[in-house]
């Protein structure tokens, strides 16, 4: 079984992994600039435009600044968990993108002659993997808040854990509806099914909206950013973090946004499927482009919503999650299941 290792296959997989991982981190860096530019435009401002053309090198400058900043560890902080928490927040967020197909069909990698699907890991249980790894991200936030020995940090992480638990349910139920439609947990299969039978957003608009709302809560973004909540909790869970540790939390948040946007595209907007174009006739680069455009829209939506809407009150957040989203998602799932059996 392990007689011979196909080195070209290993190289091909490493290449795709590097592309996907590098792409995620690069987009996360670009998002930190986009966040500031878009917010500036929405407030009659210009935003950072000094470093490089149009301020495009601002993330690089920020990174260099973060690297040279002093690391401060508060007195009484847990020495191991305090250092571990940023990594725990960032790594699962980067790992979620592994099962998101960033195109449809296969690509033949030049010089190696290997035919690979446009996804890092074409897992048969990709959707479950996404949920499992995605919910690991809350550990980084909880541990970060707890280990910093600061009441504001702890409050932020306690809120965040309750919020993520509540919204994980609606997220999963909404995802289940999309999975029911295609009858497969494999993201590649879900995309193919949508390409053949129409996008899920048409057949599952309610699940789409529920997923959309839950995904904002899952990534701790406005209007559900109770983990940070600057006016109330100083900085929330990352109050005590400085230098590169803080940057890791940042990268983790943006990577989670990239992963979530990729997943909602895969589940509801047909992944890399170009409308009115059969899979067989779609060149791989066009499908990657289509995926990038759809994901980019959701990434923009994150910023758009953040700079438009005020933060919810905490009881409103719980009310929305438990009394509205979960019943709606459950009913939607039940109806979908019944219709699926009848039709």
């Amino acid at each position: 079984m392990f007689s011979a290792i196909d080195w070209s296959l290993v190289a091909a997989m490493l290449l795709i992994t590097a592309l996907a991982f590098g792409g995620t981190v690069a987009v996360a860096g670009a998002m930190s600039l986009a966040e500031r530019r878009v917010s500036a435009w929405m407030q009659f401002r210009i935003g950072p435009n000094r470093v490089g053309p149009f301020g495009l090198l601002q993330p690089v400058a920020d990174l260099i600044k973060f690297l040279f900043k002093e690391e401060v560890m508060p007195e009484g902080a847990h020495p191991v968990l305090f250092r571990l928490a940023p990594a725990l927040a960032a790594i699962p967020a980067m790992m979620t993108f592994a099962v998101v197909p960033f195109g449809i069909g296969n690509v033949t990698i030049p010089f190696l002659g290997i035919d690979r699907p446009l996804v890092v890991a074409n897992l048969p249980v990709g959707a479950l993997y996404f949920l499992a790894i995605g919910s690991l991200g809350v550990y980084g936030i909880i541990l970060g808040g707890w280990a910093s020995n600061n009441k504001f940090s702890l409050l932020g992480s306690v809120r965040s854990s309750a919020q993520m638990l509540s919204y994980e349910l609606s997220l999963t139920l909404a995802m289940a509806a999309a999975i029911l439609m295609s009858g497969s947990l494999q993201p590649m299969e879900i995309v193919r099914h949508q390409a053949e039978h129409g996008w899920n957003v048409i057949y599952q608009p309610i699940a789409f909206v529920v997923f959309l709302i839950a995904m904002f809560a899952e990534t701790n973004r406005h209007p559900f950013d109770f983990a940070e909540c600057e006016p109330e909790l100083v900085g929330g869970f990352h109050t005590e973090y400085s230098s590169m540790k803080f940057a890791l939390f940042f990268v983790g948040e943006y990577s989670a946004m990239v992963g979530m946007s990729g997943m909602i595209t895969t589940l509801f907007l047909g992944g890399g499927h170009v409308p009115f174009l059969a899979i067989e006739h779609t060149p791989w680069w066009l499908s990657v482009l289509a995926f990038a455009v759809k994901t980019g829209f959701f990434l923009f939506l994150y910023l758009w919503v953040r700079w438009s809407l005020p933060r919810f009150r905490y009881d409103q957040l719980m009310d929305l999650g438990w009394y509205k989203l979960i019943p709606v998602a459950l009913a939607n799932l039940a109806v979908t299941g019944v219709l699926k059996v009848i039709l």
């Binding site: 009659f44 210009i46 758009w304």
Partner: peptide
């Protein structure tokens, strides 16, 4: 009605800045 707010910010994006 949140959509109304989103519309306002989106329109603002293409307005002239006052900086």
């Amino acid at each position: 009605s949140l959509l109304k707010g989103l519309g306002i910010t989106f329109r603002t994006m293409f307005r002239k800045h006052i900086v």
